[in-house]
């Protein structure tokens, strides 16, 4: 291998020799116990639903398994016991079918802080498109920049995307901000495909362009169920 390549490998190897494994494990255990954060997604999916009987594995069992973990127990690992008392658990769920009160009471009690997140409307979508550090719009611009294509979104173009997103979300199925991905991907389908041949061009995505590309789909609910 070349000298340059060897550099990193050798540094890693040498530093591994300098590091004492025992100390690492010790401080890692300490930081797990005191700073660890566990994010439990889809917790609503393990709540017992009364309207669905049989054929399903016991969901309550899972909740009961989780209880000691959240309450604080000692888990044996290959590096020795780890106490879970001070690990922070953040649970999240949509709770569209089940309610938080469908969870085992014990489990509810162990998740004392409840926060609700609001459904997104088209204003939020506009902000999502524009504001975050690596927003979707910025991502697509950067992607096409690699092909030497200048992509420009006009203000009303962004508004149109946001409006379509919230429209489809309300008429078909609410999948939140992910709807923006599907819509932008659709809108830019043609550009993404041909960008390689269009180096040097400047493409402006405005309201008209968007409507030309997906306007029909949005109107037809049946169709958008499948495509958007």
């Amino acid at each position: 291998m070349s000298v340059k390549e060897s550099h990193e490998i050798l540094i890693n190897e040498e530093s591994d020799k300098l590091i004492e494994q025992d100390k690492i494990i010790k401080s890692a255990k300490d930081s797990t116990e005191n700073n660890g954060i566990v994010f439990l997604d889809e917790i609503d999916k393990i709540s017992a639903r009364t309207d669905r009987v049989g054929g399903d594995v016991s969901r309550e069992g899972v909740q009961r398994d989780l209880l000691p973990l959240i309450e604080g127990t000692t888990v044996s690992t290959k590096y020795g016991p780890v106490k879970t008392d001070h690990i922070l658990f953040i649970a999240s769920g949509a709770f569209q079918l089940a309610k938080p009160s469908d969870l085992l009471p014990e489990l509810q009690g162990r998740l004392p802080i409840r926060v609700e997140l609001d459904a997104l409307n088209s204003e939020d979508f506009i902000r999502i498109l524009k504001e975050p550090d690596n927003s979707l719009i910025k991502q697509y611009k950067a992607l096409l920049k690699t092909e030497n294509v200048d992509l420009e979104f006009t203000e009303d173009g962004i508004n149109t995307i946001a409006n379509i997103a919230s429209e489809v979300n309300s008429s078909v199925e609410n999948i939140g901000a992910r709807r923006l991905h599907t819509i932008i991907e659709r809108v830019l389908d043609e550009i993404s495909f041909t960008a390689t041949d269009r180096a040097g061009e400047k493409i402006t995505v405005d309201s008209k362009y968007i409507k030309d590309n997906i306007g029909e789909l949005v109107k037809d609910t049946d169709l958008s169920k499948f495509i958007l």
Binding site: F39, A91, P100, I113, A177
Partner: peptide, 27 residues
């Protein structure tokens, strides 16, 4: 411990992902 309630795609997961980076804690 926290329970976050909200429909899909509103940023529940994203918040915790970013949080873990901020916290520099095992996540």
């Amino acid at each position: 411990n926290i329970l976050m309630i909200g429909p899909t795609g509103v940023g529940k997961t994203e918040i915790s992902r970013r949080l873990s980076k901020l916290a520099e804690a095992p996540f």
